[in-house]
Amino acid sequence: MSEIAAADRGVAGRRARRSLVPFLLLVPVAVLFLSIYLPSIGYGFAQSFWKFAWDKGIIREWNIENYTSFFTVPRNLEILWTTLRVSTISTAFSLIIGYPLAYYIAFRGGRFRGFLILLTIAPLLVTVVIRSMGWLMVLGPGGVINDALLEWGIVREPVKMLFNETAVIIGMTHIHVPYVTIGVLTSLQMMDPALMLASRGLGATPARTFWRIVFPLSLPGVFTGVIISFLLSMTSFATPQIMGGGRVQVIATKIYQEELFLLNFPFGGAIAFILLVIVATITVLSTRFVERGRFREVFQH
């Protein structure tokens, strides 16, 4: 034992003498990040303060017009509002669908546990574009839902369910349910099942046991899942592009349009940095909330 301790001291001593090893290990990633990543983001940021004219292209005149116009033009504010609304609603639905799945896997899964986890994660391996395309088939005029509605005589004409906000919300919910389920499941797995038995044994109803014991203990997972789902919704591009069919404009699709169709790099960049500020604020606030907020005791488990 003392020999190992001595070796430990020896290694620690050598490390204290400023080893070159960590710097050598960081060289490859540093080369890539400092030669391409950092200058790109820096240049993109600088360019978001330049001007753009249809006839002259990008003009290197510093101004903050791109930022102010985003917040003063009603159409742009509407896009921001749509993005927030769609993200909030789809996150709520992800939780409503994703939580029971996690609960079932954790407590009722039995020998199907592994299989159910596989079923939950499998959709994550399929490209988002393909999954959203699948919804075009399900909700489209010849899709299974319209077929059923027509068959049962509920409607006479196929219902138009695509290319509107509802379709975007359905598509986003579908993408984010697995994240919520995984988040909640991670929390539920750390819970001691004996707590539930104790609660029931002391006479609490199943509902009371759930709301007083299980749900509070799963809050960290709920929180993680909700934050991931919301952030992914705020920045998602492919799903609104496909499910909205150009008729629902969110921040990401607006940036895409500005950059690739109108070639207004400065304005597209400005919107992207506004999106970054929103996303970063949520990330920082949520981390603070987790660390110091009222969930603190729960997180220490």
């Binding site: 990543y37 790109s40 983001i41 240049y43 993109g44 940021f45 705020m234 920045t235 591009f237 990401a252 940036i255 895409y256 950059e259 790099f265 597209g268 960049g269 992207a272 940095f273 999106l275 970054l276 996303v279």
Partner: peptide, 8 residues
């Protein structure tokens, strides 16, 4: 946001 990295 991935879109910011893309356009940058």
């Amino acid at each position: 946001p991935r879109i910011l990295i893309g356009i940058s």
